[in-house]
Amino acid sequence: MTASTVADLQNEHLSISPSVLYFGAPVVLVVTRNEDGSPNITPMSSAWALGSRVVLGLSSASQGAANLRRERECTLNFASADLWSKVEKIARGTGKDPVPAFKQAMGFGYMADKFDAGGFTQVPSQRLRTPRIAECPLQFEASLVTIHGEEADPSPASQQALIIECEVVRVHAHHRIVVPGTNHIDTRRWNPLYYVFRHYFGDARDLGRNFRAEA
């Protein structure tokens, strides 16, 4: 490759300053329990898994973070692409009452029952008191391990980006997306909902298998 070719390739890219860095991750509906025992749903897409741990990125001012801090458990419900409109119905809602000023400025409002607002169905968990979302084909029951990022100002009024580490204690998958007779997800049938630069995406295409793929 010549120097001029490298220069041409380099010049094809622009240096930009996007307002958000949500480059694309699966939508997770985090269910937690409020102080009165009622469930709250926190839609989010800042999550990743390693081994049996899942790491969540949540605002310290969110109701979901407050509930997790107190109850130390949650369910992680992975929406399929066909659920995007239900997710959007609760996107403007927050379980915080009163609504924090910064959320009001972004157009959020108090939403007491997000299950009803989104048309979701509660089903009980097996290891936790926190319910799952029946419509989501893949569901994790998880317990809190630790929260990073609260050291500077742990007060409920502060707004910080928290890194929340959870341990998955039970996994549920709809029979349609499980390879029969195995514990493997059938990736041809599992169509997760992705959140990409504040747009919803689905209908992922299988391009091939990694050498470590088991199914």
Rank of each mutant, 00 (worst) to 15 (best):
M1V: 12
L9Q: 06
L9N: 11
S19F: 02
P26D: 05
P26V: 07
V30F: 09
G37M: 02
S38G: 02
M44D: 01
M44Y: 01
S45E: 08
G57W: 10
S59P: 06
S59G: 15
Q63A: 09
G64E: 06
G64R: 01
G64V: 02
R69K: 14
R70S: 11
T75R: 12
L76C: 05
A79Q: 11
L83M: 14
S85D: 15
K89D: 10
T94L: 11
G95V: 05
K96R: 14
D97K: 09
A101F: 06
M106P: 12
G107W: 00
G109D: 14
G109K: 11
D113T: 03
K114A: 00
D116E: 15
G119N: 12
G119E: 01
Q122Y: 09
T130S: 05
T130R: 00
R132S: 07
L138A: 10
Q139G: 14
S143W: 02
L144F: 00
L144D: 06
L144M: 07
T146W: 06
E150P: 08
E151I: 04
E151K: 10
S155G: 09
P156K: 00
S158E: 05
Q160E: 11
V168G: 03
V169F: 04
V171E: 10
H172W: 15
H175T: 13
R176K: 06
P180W: 00
N183S: 09
D186V: 00
D186N: 07
R189I: 05
W190G: 13
L193K: 06
Y194Q: 06
G202A: 04
D206L: 13
L207Q: 08
G208E: 03
F211T: 10
R212C: 10
A213S: 13
